[in-house]
Amino acid sequence: MTASSGTAAPTDASKERWEWTEERYRDGVFSHAVATERERLRLLESVLDDHTRGHFQRLGLASGHRVLEVGGGGGSVARWLAGQGADVTVTDLDTTYLDELSEAGVRVLRHDVYTDDFPQGSFDFIHTRYVVIHLPDPERAVARLVQWLKPGGVLLLEEPAFFPIKDSPHPAYRKVMRAFRAHLESAVGTDTEWARNLPVPLRGKGLDGIGYDARLQRIAGGDNEAEWWRLTLEQTRAAVVAEGLATDEDFEAAYRELADPGFHDLSLAVFTAWGTRQGS
């Protein structure tokens, strides 16, 4: 059974780059109503989940820990956490792909991380992946997440930065990636380079033991990363073309590059940062 949060937090627009409404994200580029969205999320999980699991294990995840998975997407991380014996709450603006997890003992909650609240000190771990960069003020979101941790609880963020794709030597890939980035920034409001600041945004928010790592995602023609990009680009193609950022011919050329077994390049840079809430 899916619950819905009725507790709203006050907003502070002093640092917001634009006005947040959940519809801007939920019903736009990444809407669950798009026919290919679940497969797109599955492909993303296939290239990111091993890294996510490794971070949880290194940071001391144990059976019985109360874990909040924010923006659960296709649900693979929440399912794995439940399999480790954690007490899992998973949230999203649209829980269509998550509702089945309730059968595995996961609490599924339609919840807006930017406006809805949890009681302070509720969780031993809080994790987000590819979520915070889409919010008007990512640092405000981080501060909210910290408040929901118990003293000694761990915040784990995984967020991408787009700088590796901007200077690709592959012309079609480079052009549509730049166009996609521009569309995300204007239509969704994504700050495509915010993650490059990590771990600095975790400082001054009541966290100790702050750490981070970074990696460059590699992409090869026809692999899961390439197919994830093809579906991601195709979901935005009509809007990008309408905005005059690229043409249909540019997209088709990029798809040919992404399908070519000889294609090798960089995808996104993924920054992971963590910290432990102060107190005892």
Rank of each mutant, 00 (worst) to 15 (best):
T91N: 08
L81Q: 06
P136D: 06
A143R: 15
M177L: 14
E159H: 03
R129Y: 07
I126C: 02
W148E: 00
D117T: 15
D167F: 15
R107W: 09
L157Q: 02
A86E: 05
E158Q: 05
K175M: 07
A86D: 05
P169Y: 02
E103F: 13
D191K: 12
P138I: 12
D117A: 15
H170L: 09
H111Q: 08
V131N: 03
P138L: 10
R107C: 06
D94N: 15
L145P: 05
W148G: 00
I126V: 15
I165Y: 09
R140I: 12
G85W: 06
A187G: 07
H127M: 07
P119H: 10
V90Y: 04
K166V: 14
E185L: 07
V154D: 00
H170T: 13
V106I: 06
V142W: 03
V132C: 09
E185F: 07
D92L: 07
P138Y: 12
P136K: 10
F118E: 03
E159R: 03
V146I: 09
Y130W: 15
V132N: 11
P160A: 09
T190V: 12
W148N: 02
D124H: 06
E103V: 13
W80P: 06
V113P: 02
L149S: 01
D99I: 10
A161R: 01
S122D: 03
M177G: 14
D116Q: 15
G189N: 04
T190Q: 06
G85H: 05
P119Y: 07
G189A: 06
K175P: 11
G85L: 03
I165P: 03
Y114T: 07
V188T: 15
V90D: 04
A143D: 11
G189F: 08
F162K: 02
A182C: 03
F123R: 00
Q84F: 06
T128D: 00
S102P: 06
K175I: 10
F123W: 02
G152R: 00
T91C: 12
L157V: 08
Y114P: 04
P151M: 02
Q84S: 12
H170Q: 12
Q120M: 13
R79N: 10
D116L: 09
D99H: 11
G189H: 03
L135A: 07
P119E: 14
F180M: 08
V90T: 15
V176A: 05
H127F: 15
D87T: 14
R174S: 09
S122E: 02
Q147A: 14
P171Q: 09
T128K: 01
R144E: 02
L156W: 01
D92F: 11
P138Q: 05
P151N: 01
P169R: 11
P119I: 05
L145M: 15
T128N: 03
G83T: 08
A143L: 07
W80T: 05
L155Y: 00
